[in-house]
């Protein structure tokens, strides 16, 4: 347990160890959130993504290297996370988040790492069906947003407008910031600590260096 000595007063380590977190999309957001969860000792991390590593991912997707180009993201990510923390169980699933999406594994919380809104709505439905929280996160330009959704809160469709935009500009640092906030929400939830972002949409605007909260 010496590995977790510097966080033992902050989280319920046993709770994290016994938890199973699904990260859907292992790109800019999911790369960072899976890394933070692995470091913190979350017992089971399930990674879902169908993409392969592309050269244009390398500006922001922390788990991949140039030699990984063309390889399946979930398998490369799983290998890296196991190297970072061999004590955890990482389950890679090469699958698209579509209407039919389901997995047999137990999941305690879902973390959004998607790059499109359609996938996010499907992921939210999956989470609500399972009665587990869905931690929404998205980035674009210098801005990002996070909220905690469960059966008691407003849903994506209540506040989000479906706007289709191909491949928005994204910085690794913004993705890292938002993924970090998502991961903290997950760790707080799993440890039973603090206030969660329920019915609160947190917007981070790096250009003005402001955190803003929209009451949902």
């Amino acid at each position: 347990m010496e590995r977790y000595l510097r966080q033992k007063e902050l989280v319920c380590q046993e709770c994290l160890k016994n938890s199973s977190v699904l990260i859907a999309g292992v790109g800019g957001l999911g790369g960072f959130s899976s890394l933070y969860l692995a470091l913190a000792g979350v017992g089971t991390i399930i990674l879902v993504d169908q993409d392969v590593v592309e050269v244009s991912n390398l500006n922001r997707q922390v788990l991949y290297r140039k030699e990984d180009i063309g390889r399946d993201k979930v398998y490369v990510a799983a290998k890296r996370l196991r190297e970072i923390n061999p004590e955890i169980n990482v389950i890679p699933i090469k699958k698209r988040i579509s209407e039919e999406f389901d997995i047999p594994h137990r999941v305690d919380v879902v973390i959004d790492g998607m790059d499109n809104l359609e996938g996010r709505f499907i992921l939210q439905e999956f989470s609500l069906r399972r009665e587990i929280p869905y931690i929404f996160g998205a980035v674009e330009g210098y801005m990002g947003m996070v909220t905690f959704i469960d059966k008691t809160t407003k849903k994506l469709q209540d506040f989000f407008t479906k706007i289709s935009q191909k491949a928005p500009q994204v910085l690794g640092a913004t993705a890292g910031m938002i993924a970090s906030l998502q991961t903290l929400e997950a760790m707080k939830y799993l440890s039973g600590k603090g206030d969660l972002l329920r019915n609160r949409l947190l917007i981070y605007d790096a250009l003005s260096t402001n955190f803003m909260e929209v009451k949902l």
């Binding site: 790109g27 809104l117 998205a138 980035v139 674009e140 330009g141 990002g144 929209v214």
Partner: peptide, 12 residues
Amino acid sequence: DVVSIFPPAGGG
């Protein structure tokens, strides 16, 4: 009433 106006973020 409180009216909030903001741009969406869709990437990841």
